[in-house]
């Protein structure tokens, strides 16, 4: 199953977005992460990396041939808010052993789309990211 990480400069915003997306998510694992680690606004690559590992189901060392079939490590799609959150998520993806990709999408709408897409039993990182990025075209009025 593809996991989802929601990254925001605000820890509470990340949690709130994950809460909304979880309504649509079934069993999908959605990990919120945000804040500078000291109660302020910001993001930290190490924390994002940890969230990616959690969303990937922990089985990310690549040592097991069973990764494909155990259904717990199909990769992670990362939703990000702004500016340095994108760069920090990029660093985290590069540091992580898990298969992870950042979606170039609005963070809330993208997270909801990704949550729905991840419930598809044949979902992949690519398919989930594609659905998240389709949120760029959502018109509200």
């Amino acid at each position: 199953m593809v996991g989802i990480v929601v990254v925001s400069h605000s820890e509470r915003a990340a949690e709130g977005i994950a809460e909304i997306a979880a309504e649509m998510a079934g069993d999908t694992c959605i990990e919120p992460v945000g804040g500078d680690g000291k109660g302020g606004i910001g993001t930290v690559p190490d924390a994002i990396e940890a969230a990616i590992e959690d969303a990937a189901g922990g089985d990310t060392d690549g040592s097991d041939a069973g990764d494909e079939s155990d259904g717990d490590a199909d990769g992670v799609v990362v939703l990000v808010d702004l500016g340095s959150a994108v760069m920090n998520a990029d660093v985290a993806v590069e540091l992580s052993d898990a298969e992870a990709a950042i979606a170039d999408a609005p963070v809330l709408e993208g997270a909801v789309n990704a949550a729905v897409a991840a419930t598809d039993p044949s979902a992949t990182v690519e398919s989930v990211r594609e659905q998240a990025e389709a949120a760029r075209d959502i018109e509200k009025l």
């Binding site: 690559p45 190490d46 500016g83 760069m87 920090n88 660093v91 590069e94 540091l95």
Partner: peptide
């Protein structure tokens, strides 16, 4: 690099720190 990533904040954290880590 790791310390800078965690402590500097903003874009300078990943730029100065992340680049150093790699």
């Amino acid at each position: 690099g790791k310390t800078l990533m965690a402590e500097v904040g903003g874009a300078s954290g990943p730029l100065f720190g992340g680049s150093l880590v790699f």
